[in-house]
């Protein structure tokens, strides 16, 4: 099974961090993964995006014309990438900052839609920067394959010293996202 994922938002929403974390978590489960950060001029235009390809087999082709999953954190990203989502694909939407349209919601082959008010929930937790972790938790609830234990393990290795205290708020954000997805 191969899953092709696009993650997009505006610069500063932690899109790259989220993509890399997802890729690392998948790698920990011994599956194959390729992560492509978007780089260059388009990043500076305001929209940050990256892609993650997950598979049980060797990934030769790291590109994606069509995404199985689209995770968007703001409206411009939704507008830009919505057409790339395959019919009946999974859309994880930060509903605090983006709204969907007819085709995605009701058209033929409409998306499996997860509306997650990630920015509001992150603000409620006192740290708007963990909105990306809430989105990742929601994705994990829908697709599986990524556990809170794995994510915390990766964060513990990366957030050390003065940043070690951030592990807990990220853990709680991931769990919050899972809960919102299941609600």
């Amino acid at each position: 099974m191969t899953e092709r994922i696009i993650i997009a938002g505006f610069g500063g929403q932690g899109v790259m961090t989220m993509g890399k974390l997802l890729a690392e978590a998948v790698m920990c489960s011994d599956r194959q993964v390729a992560f492509i950060p978007s780089y260059g001029a388009e990043v500076r235009g305001g929209t940050a995006n990256c892609s993650v390809v997950l598979s049980d087999e060797t990934i030769h082709y790291p590109f994606l014309a069509e995404a199985d999953t689209l995770i968007v954190l703001n409206q411009p990203s939704y507008d830009r990438f919505r057409s790339r989502l395959r019919p009946e694909g999974l859309l994880v939407l930060n509903s605090s900052m983006a709204a969907t349209d007819e085709r995605i919601e009701a058209g033929a082959g409409r998306a499996v839609l997860l509306r997650i008010p990630a920015t509001e929930a992150a603000n409620d937790m006192g740290n708007v920067r963990v909105a990306n972790m809430i989105m990742l938790g929601a994705y994990a609830a829908a697709r599986g394959g990524v556990t809170v234990e794995t994510v915390v393990g990766i964060l513990q290795a990366e957030l050390t010293g003065a940043r070690a205290h951030l592990v807990d708020v990220n853990r709680r954000a991931f769990l919050k996202g899972q809960a919102l997805a299941k609600a």
């Binding site: 890399k20 890729a23 790698m27 194959q32 993964v33 390729a34 992560f35 492509i36 950060p37 780089y39 990934i59 790291p62």
Partner: peptide, 10 residues
């Protein structure tokens, strides 16, 4: 090339 340089894999 730019992709081989930029992409991340295990």
């Amino acid at each position: 090339d730019g992709l081989v340089g930029q992409m991340m894999e295990p």
